[in-house]
Design a protein around this nucleic acid. Structure first.
Lengths: 117, 117
DNA sequence: GTATCATATGAACAAATCTTCATATGAAAG
DNA sequence: CTTTCATATGAAGATTTGTTCATATGATAC
């Protein structure tokens, strides 16, 4: 069981096709990359990241800024956390979240460039 | 009907919250930004973009490189097209797709930096 | 210990998403 | 005009995703 998919093609140089196949990064890398973008791909999470641009915030405050439930925000923070986009520290009852590094800022800035054209 | 959501909060300076709310970009911008990232947030589409890194390709060849259906690839190309990430030109029966601009490369490069840590 | 505040998490449901299959469109050749 | 090749698209179905609600955990104050 091997042959499937694409029945042939247009110009269809088999050599070109093979060359490109070999040049593609590993599936795992591509999947991780897509997953990273997927995390940015939700308005709520983008808003959370934006809210954290200037300073750290606790969960409740984030929820207030966005006008969303604490639960919803917490769920999203978990995703952002596991993608290493935000970090956190505990202080008493509260948990303060902040951007994990500057990649987040660069990423959003770059995205904005494309959107604002 | 106004009061909803977040029952109050941790530190919860109402002024800080209001300040941040005013500083957030328009909802429309944030939505567009999320939508852009969402387009990058799928392995198939990432693969397509990667395949187009070096040269333009017709739909059938892309499908072969990825080992996917022509239909599937075509559906995804439509998304990439409407997000202005790829452009195309027709030549006889074939349609050649290519990256629309360098934002795509920068975006993927930046994403890779974060993933490969 | 109990009460309270802040956050996290599990289950459930609705909405969005991706692939497949079948078929339509569009262009060139006969 | 009919056939063939390349691509596009609509509908259907399975999977994924985001929010809500209820409840659990964790930390402080009493």
């Amino acid at each position: 069981m091997a042959e499937e998919h694409a029945p042939a093609a247009c110009p269809g140089g088999t050599d070109l096709v093979e060359k490109l196949q070999n040049e593609l990064p590993d599936d795992e890398v591509l999947y991780d990359l897509a997953e990273l973008f997927r995390v940015f791909g939700d308005s709520t999470r983008i808003k959370i990241l934006y809210a954290l641009f200037e300073s750290e915030l606790c969960v409740g405050d984030i929820a207030q800024v966005l006008g969303m439930t604490q639960s919803s925000v917490s769920h999203q923070l978990r995703l952002l956390k596991s993608s290493k986009l935000v970090k956190f520290r505990r202080e008493g009852k509260a948990v303060f979240y902040s951007l994990d590094d500057d990649h987040v800022r660069s990423m959003i800035a770059l995205g904005l460039e494309h959107v604002e054209e």
